[in-house]
């Protein structure tokens, strides 16, 4: 019996180590490449790529952080993300509030419609969206707006889902008290409910920000067939693979710069991020 316990414990430890290294190794490799010097990646086949650079250097970071094209792309990404957050919250928060508070018929139907947009695979919806945005009157929209409208389509259902939970956790008594004291519904919503919901809504907002920041498929389809001067960072990163001689240090550096805000926010707000990423599992 004692031996059996030991055996299962050893298996457990081994599995933990294996899964941790499987997760960490690629991330380490990305980090390693980003601080590699020239001789650590151009080997000429004489020696394998080292597991740690011979002369670690931050040159690439210096280069990109001073590069105006990188910053132009980064600002596009940030602007799109902020606009997506604003659109999602302004449209989503009031709707989520009403859905969480009212018991009217057809609530289920509205919820179904709101979530049904996610039933169309993004790779399928990318084609009509890109086609509409790049033809006719829509084509005159600035690319920032095109991208954020498309991203809002992904972000809005999440905001409604997350915000509904936030509003449900605010006791109804507070609002009833405000009504009794003579406040209108709109006034109560702005002055009583929203201040209490801010932390939860902020988490939802960050989730949507990251969603937009990471989004590739829709951004790529919208920008691929039109000539745009700037690209959102993920699409920009992809375009680097296509270069005649891809520079691994450059790719790794941009990769890390793109990932960093996501990693920081995800762990600072782990609890909320988890509820967002598993949102679809609740039926």
């Amino acid at each position: 019996m004692v031996k059996k316990i030991k055996l299962s414990k050893i298996t457990w430890i081994i599995l933990i180590i294996v899964s941790l290294s499987l997760v960490l190794l690629p991330i380490y490799v990305m980090f390693k490449y980003s601080i590699s010097d020239r001789s650590s990646w151009i080997t000429g086949g004489k020696y394998p790529v080292p597991w740690f650079p011979f002369n670690p250097t931050l040159d690439m970071y210096r280069y990109y952080l001073a590069d105006t094209r990188f910053w132009a792309n980064a600002f596009l990404s940030i602007n799109v993300a902020l606009l997506t957050v604003a659109l999602s919250i302004i449209l989503g928060a009031p709707a989520a509030y009403s859905l969480s508070r009212s018991k009217f018929n057809g609530k289920a139907i509205i919820l179904f419609f709101i979530l049904s947009i996610r039933l169309i695979p993004d790779i399928s919806s990318a084609v009509p969206i890109a086609t509409i945005f790049n033809n006719g009157l829509w084509d005159y929209l600035p690319v920032v707006l095109k991208l954020s409208l498309a991203h809002t389509l992904l972000g809005l259902p999440y905001v409604i889902y997350i915000a509904q939970g936030v509003f449900e956790s605010i006791p109804k008594d507070l609002e009833e008290q405000a009504h009794v004291m003579g406040c209108g519904k709109f006034y109560t919503f702005l002055n009583i409910v929203i201040p209490l919901a801010i932390p939860g809504l902020a988490a939802g907002a960050i989730y949507v920000f990251l969603l937009s920041w990471n989004e590739f498929t829709l951004s790529y389809f919208i920008t691929a067939t039109s000539s745009v001067p700037m690209l959102p960072l993920p699409v920009y990163l992809k375009s680097m693979f296509g270069a005649f001689t891809p520079n691994p240090v450059g790719i790794a550096t941009i990769s890390l710069l793109v990932s960093l805000p996501v990693i920081v926010f995800t762990f600072a707000l782990q609890k909320y991020m988890i509820s967002g990423s598993t949102a679809g599992s609740v039926k």
Partner: peptide, 14 residues
């Protein structure tokens, strides 16, 4: 989960 998908692919390419 905190690594953008496109970044994951770029690491794998490397």
């Amino acid at each position: 989960l905190a690594i953008p998908t496109i970044v994951t692919t770029s690491i794998l390419v490397l």
